[in-house]
């Protein structure tokens, strides 16, 4: 490999950290508390087969808020988004392909 030396260290990082105001955190906290209240409320009602959908739906919204604001995903570049979303794709794969087993299994 042809190389030459360089007198100074190379720095890739020039981006400034994004600063989020306190109001955003307070709104996020209030939203999480409200969603927790809704979780408790829906637990007292029977939605039949949609019980799990409702519970996981609310949980997903809460997780998204935490990831976007507390964990600053909203202000990150595409690469970070790719690494954040790829596990969701894998989760869909795990659930989807396992479903191809569970839903089509013949009774003995």
């Amino acid at each position: 490999m042809a190389t030459k030396t360089h007198s100074e260290e190379h720095h890739h990082d020039h981006e400034e950290p994004h600063i989020v105001g306190n109001s955003v955190y307070i709104i996020v906290w209030v939203a999480l508390m409200i969603l927790t209240g809704i979780t408790v409320w829906v637990a007292r009602h029977n939605f039949g087969v949609f019980n799990i959908v409702v519970a996981l739906g609310i949980a997903s919204i809460k997780a998204s808020i935490v990831a976007l604001f507390f964990m600053h995903l909203k202000y990150e570049d595409k690469l970070t988004w790719t690494f954040a979303l790829y596990p969701l794709f894998l989760l869909a794969l795990l659930i989807g392909l396992t479903a191809s087993d569970v839903f089509y299994r013949l009774s003995p």
């Binding site: 490999m1 042809a2 030459k4 360089h6």
Partner: peptide, 13 residues
């Protein structure tokens, strides 16, 4: 590295 190198080609030349 004594000094960080500057790379000009891939490593299979």
């Amino acid at each position: 590295f004594e000094k960080i190198p500057v790379v000009t080609d891939y490593p299979y030349v």
